[in-house]
């Protein structure tokens, strides 16, 4: 039982991180109608950004996380302006392919840049707080606890921001129809940039939070990115709430799956394959995702 609890709690923490990653991906998808294939490398970048802010500049850990989010926001804004924005002009004829190629190119660029700049060996930033909370049989390291709490705060903040603020409403309006949004005086192009920046910041924050738990490595973003694709197809595709729920669920399933399936090598391969299979089946049933609106091409 305590083994189960341990796996479940660990799965929950990972699930919250997945939820952060997936909600960022969803934000870009619903506002820009673009799947960002480079999302995982932004997560990686966030992890390293906070690592260097903490170790090189000596900032407190949580300030490092916040700093990483700011850095990633700026990076996202610049990338959107320079590379994604031309997509909305007549210059780009095949918009879907364009978006896939440039965001996928970003992954190639960043993950290899990570290898040469940060090195292939994993790095660990200092703990948020050493030690662990001991609740009977359950040992909960403070790092995990803090990561989970911060993730929850960010997710709640994101939800409130989208629901309650004028900017959040404007993002939502553009996600529903950019023409109608433009009619009521919202500049869709500005919203695209903001959405991409926010999404990058969320990915970066997730990477920074996970850093003290699992070490940093240039390929750390690959798996969460794939999970995030699965999550947005399954639940989200436009729904931030859906992607949060989906993230937590997937984290739990994988945490328990790896813990309980016998052969660890196979267990790891097949829990990953299981998620991919879920995505395949979902798309076969609903070619535009389970609860998604039909995909609007940007024409």
């Amino acid at each position: 039982m305590s083994y189960f609890l341990l796996l479940a709690v660990n799965g929950l923490v990972i699930g919250l991180i997945f939820a952060l990653v997936a909600s960022g991906l969803t934000l870009v998808f619903s506002v820009l109608k673009v799947v960002n294939f480079g999302h995982g490398s932004l997560y990686m970048l966030g992890g390293y950004a906070s690592y260097y802010l903490i170790t090189a500049l000596g900032l407190p850990s949580l300030v490092g996380v916040a700093g990483a989010m700011v850095a990633l926001f700026i990076f996202g804004v610049i990338f959107e302006r320079l590379v994604i924005a031309p997509m909305y002009t007549d210059k780009v004829e095949r918009k879907d392919e364009y978006a896939i190629i440039v965001t996928f190119g970003l992954t190639i660029l960043l993950s290899n840049l990570g290898l040469v700049v940060f090195g292939p060996f994993s790095k660990s930033p200092p703990s948020f707080m050493p030690g662990a909370l001991i609740l009977g049989p359950l040992i909960l390291p403070y790092d995990r606890l803090i990561a989970a709490v911060v993730a929850v705060v960010l997710l709640v903040g994101l939800t409130l921001f989208l629901k309650r603020t004028a900017l959040g409403q404007a993002l939502d309006a553009v996600s529903q129809s950019r023409e109608s949004a433009a009619v009521i005086g919202i500049d869709p192009r500005r919203m695209y940039t903001i959405a991409f920046g926010l999404s990058s910041a969320l990915a970066g924050g997730a990477g920074a939070l996970i850093a003290p738990i699992f070490a940093l490595s240039p390929s750390m973003g690959d798996l969460p990115a794939v999970q995030a694709f699965i999550i947005i197809v399954l639940g989200g595709m436009g729904s931030v709430g859906g992607s949060i729920a989906g993230g937590i669920l997937l984290g739990l399933v994988q945490g328990l799956g790896v813990g309980y399936l016998p052969d660890p090598n196979r267990a790891l391969a097949y829990t990953q394959a299981f998620g991919a299979l879920l995505l395949v089946v979902t798309l076969l049933i609903r070619p535009t995702g389970l609860f998604g609106r039909s995909h609007l091409r940007l024409e």
């Binding site: 978006a99 794939v226 196979r266 391969a269 097949y270 991919a276 299979l277 995505l279 395949v280 798309l283």
Partner: peptide
Amino acid sequence: ALVLRLSGPYLALFTLAISEIFRLMLVA
């Protein structure tokens, strides 16, 4: 035949998943 109804990013995600499933089978 399976991807007849898929296009754009959905097709990309679908084929990405199929490819990963196949690779993971080769590994496992």
